[in-house]
Nucleic acid binder design. Sequence first.
RNA 1: GGAGGACUCGCCUAGUGGCCGAUGGCGUCGGUCUUGAAAACCGAUAUAGGGAAACCUAUCGUGGGUUCGAAUCCCACGUCCUCCGCCA
Length: 422
Amino acid sequence: MIDLKFLRENPDRVRSSQIARGEDPTLVESVIAADEARRTAIAEFEALRAEQNTLSKAVGAAAKEDRPALLETSKALAEKVKGADTAKSAAEERVREILLNLSNVVEEDVPVGGEADFKIIEHVGTPREFSFEPKDHVELGKILGAIDTERGAKVSGARFYYLTGVGALLEFALVNMAISQAGAAGFIPVIPPVLVKPSAMEGTGFLGQAAENVFHLEKDDFYLVGTSEVPLAAYHMDEILPANKLPLRYAGYSSCFRREAGSYGKDTRGIIRVHQFDKVEMFSFCPPEEAEAEHRRLLQWEKDFLNAIEVPYRVIDVATGDLGSSAARKFDCEAWIPTQNAYREVTSTSNCTEFQARRLNIRMKDENGTRPIATLNGTLCALPRIIVAILENHQQEDGSVRVPKALVPFLGGREVLTPVSA
RNA sequence: GGAGGACUCGCCUAGUGGCCGAUGGCGUCGGUCUUGAAAACCGAUAUAGGGAAACCUAUCGUGGGUUCGAAUCCCACGUCCUCCGCCA
């Protein structure tokens, strides 16, 4: 949710942000009009209410014989107050409704355009030249006894999989490596709930344009989170955080669930796009004026992790039209996937400024009083995709896979993953 | 799932229809005293909204209701605690 006052004072900023995103700029006018109506309604209600309050006091103080007359007027007034109250609530609700449909205001130098209009910030590492025909991760997963997509489909359907043997071990190793890296950077490790109430889902902005991609348990009105960003952001819902504790950084490890509606036919092979996967996510609460710097730090930690697993990747500045509604800016890291001859998104970091915090009613307190706080998130390690990147980039001709140096200690000293006998 | 009990301003607490935005203590902040500190004493100490301002309005777990008037009465829900049953 963007700030009403900011919108009132900078309608043009908001309008151009909406246009850059390819979203409706006329919402700005709607909010301003609704806000006018709201303020009028509030003034009316409050005037009546004040009158009623004084009158009510008079009733209590009045002599017995004067009461009936006073009660007469009071009763009539009570009716009016009720009406004005309803009108006020409706007007406020109206403003909120429109406000919730407005996306966050994008940062000034974000590239404008759609999904394809991202700007490449840098390339790190060079795609390897293979002296043999590289196998894809599905095949490697089979050879290593690490990934079983067939049985995943048998048991749960398309886009499900089992990680087995060395595949499961690889997940544990990567999670431990991620958590230990995060811990060194001051993140508090967290294992959050993955079923959340609508308020948490809505507060983080996932019930808007992203709604079709979340699993909903209708009977119990729970949502399955698509990322631990949700329970991490909502962790401090309705709280005021003291400034001297900021930035507060959390590293959440959880399963993530995504319906992948509208992606039929995309990435149907393998575990690039699945309904359920595990992820270590960084989340940060910090003062708004530090958000941009914090965003850069999150990006750096993502790069550190990718550097540690020794895969080539590039960093892109995601274009306005491809940002989530909460994000003012987003950087993606895309790892090189040899068999696709392409860079594919493996991590992503967003600066949500005060947008999420305002919806979740999270504020900070310093000597100048309470004010909104900024929230940021970034993927440290999305398991399946990182596993894909490792298997495909470090494979050897015989189907074995070299373990990146940094990961070796987390795999009990194992330096190579070797094919299991058939 | 069943039976009870609780929920008040950072914490603890007073408050059963108008004098209550709300008592007192603790904590915190400022001051007096002191070389400094402690103690003692004095004072301050919620949030949001409307208004140019004076000031006004809302908030006692949440939402409804009764009433001229609700922290206080009624209903529903939520959370926590205790006991019973079931269970990884």
